[in-house]
Structures are given as structure tokens and as C-alpha cells.
Amino acid sequence: MLNFTYYGHSAFLLDDGKYKVLFDPFLTGNPKASIKAEDVDCDYILISHAHADHLGDAPEIAARTGAELVGIPEVLAVCEQRVPGLKQHPMNLGGSLTLPFGKVRMTLAQHSAGVAGGIACGYVVYMGGEVVYFAGDTALFSDMQLIGHKDQLDYALLPIGDNYTMGLEDAAMAAQLLNARHVIPIHYNTWPLINQDVRHYKEITEAMSRAEVHIVEPGQSMELK
């Protein structure tokens, strides 16, 4: 069993009943955040890049909870500058890491990193019997097809907000390339600049791919199965 809880923007939690894995915890200053940073409990935090709306409260949450950070070395260095002495698992693109809850593979993302010398990334996570792809912030790129070929994806979490990431059409094509069974759209409607009609996204994605699209509002949870 694997439970997904959406905290708004690109922040979410995966919980297998034993371990809690938090992603891109931008909570303080997030107008859509459904939880406060001081109320989050987690064992691991995966960070896609160092932009403020993704790195967010990661160092402070890690310091409070004892959670271990996973990310690109340059991004983890930003965390270390803010809160020294954090537990870290540096990775880079194409690498895999085995953790107590399962396996994490770091994937390419086409996006700026928010820190000099760094790169943006996504993750494929094996946890609770499911294979979950978190794209991070990214443009559409053809090698998404390779990600879906290497890892038979159950769920893909894709940004759809446009301007800074893929928009509706590109994110629908991403679902097609990834060949995921399910898609959960994220990174939209946080601010007017990235407002999108998520129901239209569901329509076009389900028309052009095998994916079932699940619209999850901030604060809502769903069982991944």
C-alpha cells in the first residue's frame, strides 16, 4: 500500500505505512499549501532543484525531523549552508540509491537548477509496490520515452502550469511518451501566471494516452494502487 498526499504546488508525501518520503516541500509562502512546515513529519526529503518554490523548507524540516535529504550535490550544499550538519545522500543523473523504503533513481529534467553548477532532476521511486515518477520542473523531452521504457511506471506526477514548465499539450504528450498507467498533475494554479484548466488536461491526456488522470486538490490524499 502506498498513500499519496498533495500539499500544493509540487509538494507531496508518499507514505507506505512505515516510511514517509517528502518531495519539494515549498510550504512557507505557498498560497496553496495545505499544511505548515512545522507540522510535516517525514523520514526522507527528495529535492528536484534549488528554486525557492521547490527547495522550500527542506533544510528546516530535515533539521526538525531528522529526515535525510536526497538531491544533486550543489542543491544539498545550499541546504547545508542554511542548516549545517544535515544527513545527506548526494546523487546525480542516472544514479540509483537503495534506501530502507525502496529504490530511487535520479532522472533528467530540462530546467534551470536555481544554483550555480547544479542541474535540475526528477526521480523514479520504487516504494510500497508502486513505481512513481516525479518529473520535477521540466520541459517536454523525447527521452521521457526511455524513462517509461526502463521503469514500468504506475504513476507519473507531471507539471502542467506552462510558462516555467510544460503546459497542457506538452504534459499530455509527456504522459504518452512515459506510458504511465496513471497521471497526477501538479505545479499549476499556485499563482495566476500558471493557472490552467486541469479538467481540460485530463480530457486531452486520456484521449491521447493510456493514462487515467487523477485531479488531487491540495490537502487531499489518495491510495496509489
Rank of each mutant, 00 (worst) to 15 (best):
V70E: 02
G161S: 10
Q196E: 14
A171S: 15
M127Q: 12
A120E: 09
V75P: 01
F141T: 11
K103Q: 12
A109D: 10
T165G: 10
D151T: 01
V115D: 02
V115C: 07
P100L: 11
N179V: 01
A109E: 07
S112L: 07
L178S: 03
R199P: 01
W191A: 10
M127H: 08
Y6L: 11
K103T: 13
F12R: 04
V216D: 03
A77I: 00
D15T: 13
L27P: 06
L193M: 14
S96L: 05
Y126L: 06
G148H: 09
I186Y: 02
P31A: 07
A116K: 08
D197C: 08
G95H: 14
S48E: 08
I160F: 06
G8N: 06
G66L: 02
A139Q: 14
P31W: 03
G56C: 05
Y7C: 06
G17C: 05
Y44P: 05
D143M: 13
I147N: 03
C121L: 07
L178Q: 05
R210L: 00
G114Q: 09
Q110G: 06
H54M: 06
N30D: 10
V125P: 04
A58S: 15
V75G: 00
G95I: 03
T165Q: 06
Q88I: 13
V75E: 01
L140S: 11
C79R: 00
Q220K: 15
P31L: 05
P218C: 07
P90A: 10
A207N: 07
D137M: 14
Y133D: 09
K87Y: 04
A174C: 04
V131W: 00
M166L: 10
S221T: 15
P185R: 11
G66W: 02
L193F: 14
E203Q: 14
E80S: 00
Q176N: 13
A62W: 00
P159D: 11
H111W: 10
H51I: 07
G8I: 11
L97A: 11
V216L: 06
S112M: 07
Y188A: 05
D197Q: 10
I35Q: 12
Q81Y: 01
L97Q: 12
F12L: 13
T5L: 09
H9R: 12
L2D: 08
D39H: 09
V70T: 08
G8Y: 06
N3L: 15
H214C: 13
Q110E: 15
F134I: 03
L22T: 12
F134C: 12
A109L: 08
A180S: 13
G8P: 07
G66E: 05
Q81M: 07
Y155P: 04
L193S: 14
E169M: 12
L157Y: 11
Y19N: 13
M106A: 14
V198C: 05
P31I: 07
A58G: 10
G167F: 06
G128S: 14
V21S: 05
A37K: 06
H149E: 15
A116C: 02
A211F: 03
H200E: 15
M222W: 06
L146Q: 15
A33R: 07
L108F: 13
H49L: 04
I184H: 04
C79I: 00
I184Y: 03
T98C: 09
Y164M: 13
L99R: 14
